[in-house]
Simulated scan of single mutants.
Amino acid sequence: MGGQGGDGHSTTYKGFTVHHPKRWHAITGKGMCAIMWFWILYRAKQDGPVVLGWRHPWEGHEDHSHGHGHEHEHEASH
């Protein structure tokens, strides 16, 4: 059915043949896994308190307003 591809390294157990991955597959997989965990830990650092319910998403963003908040309040009052 599947043919004998690759370099012939495989393990057969109860009629099921598992082919061993090539070296570049293993290295690429480990690299992608590392990138995934770095991303998860970075997002946990950034969003952890909100996800765990320790603070609301709209709290702590005053420093990102760059002075726009007062202009909008002034425009809204006219």
Rank of each mutant, 00 (worst) to 15 (best):
K22F: 14
G31T: 05
Y42N: 06
R55K: 15
I40L: 10
H25A: 15
I40F: 10
P21A: 12
Y42T: 12
V51Q: 06
G53T: 03
H25R: 10
M36N: 06
H56K: 15
G53V: 03
M32P: 00
K45R: 13
K45A: 13
C33G: 13
K22N: 10
A26K: 10
K22C: 07
I40M: 06
W54L: 15
F38C: 04
W39V: 08
D47R: 07
A34E: 07
H25F: 09
M32R: 10
T28H: 01
Q46H: 02
G48Y: 03
I27N: 01
P21S: 11
K30N: 09
K45C: 09
A26F: 10
M36H: 13
L41H: 05
Q46S: 05
A34T: 15
H56S: 14
I27G: 00
K22E: 12
W54R: 09
Y42F: 15
K45Y: 15
F38W: 03
V51T: 08
W54T: 01
R43C: 09
R55S: 08
K45E: 07
W54K: 14
A26T: 15
A44I: 07
W54G: 01
W54V: 03
M36Y: 15
R43S: 02
H25G: 05
K22V: 06
G31E: 07
F38N: 03
H56P: 00
Q46Y: 05
Y42R: 04
K30P: 01
Q46W: 04
M36E: 04
K22P: 00
Q46L: 10
I40H: 03
H20G: 03
I27D: 06
D47M: 07
P21Y: 11
Y42E: 04
G53S: 06
L52R: 14
V51S: 01
Y42K: 07
C33N: 11
V51C: 02
H56G: 13
A44S: 09
M32Y: 04
F38K: 03
I27S: 05
P21T: 08
C33Q: 13
A34L: 14
Y42P: 00
G48E: 02
R43E: 11
I35R: 11
I40K: 02
V50F: 00
W24D: 13
I35H: 12
W54P: 01
G29T: 05
P21R: 09
I35W: 12
G48D: 01
P21I: 09
V50R: 06
L52N: 06
A34P: 06
V50T: 11
G29Y: 03
I40D: 00
R23N: 09
W54H: 14
P21D: 08
R43F: 11
K45M: 06
R55L: 05
W37E: 07
A34I: 15
P49N: 14
M32I: 02
T28N: 06
K30V: 14
P49W: 04
Y42D: 02
F38M: 08
T28A: 14
H56N: 14
G48I: 02
A44C: 05
G29N: 05
F38T: 02
R55D: 01
P21M: 12
W39E: 00
Y42H: 11
H25V: 12
R43M: 13
C33T: 13
W37A: 02
H56A: 15
G53A: 08
D47N: 09
A26Y: 09
R55M: 13
Q46C: 00
A34G: 10
A34Q: 11
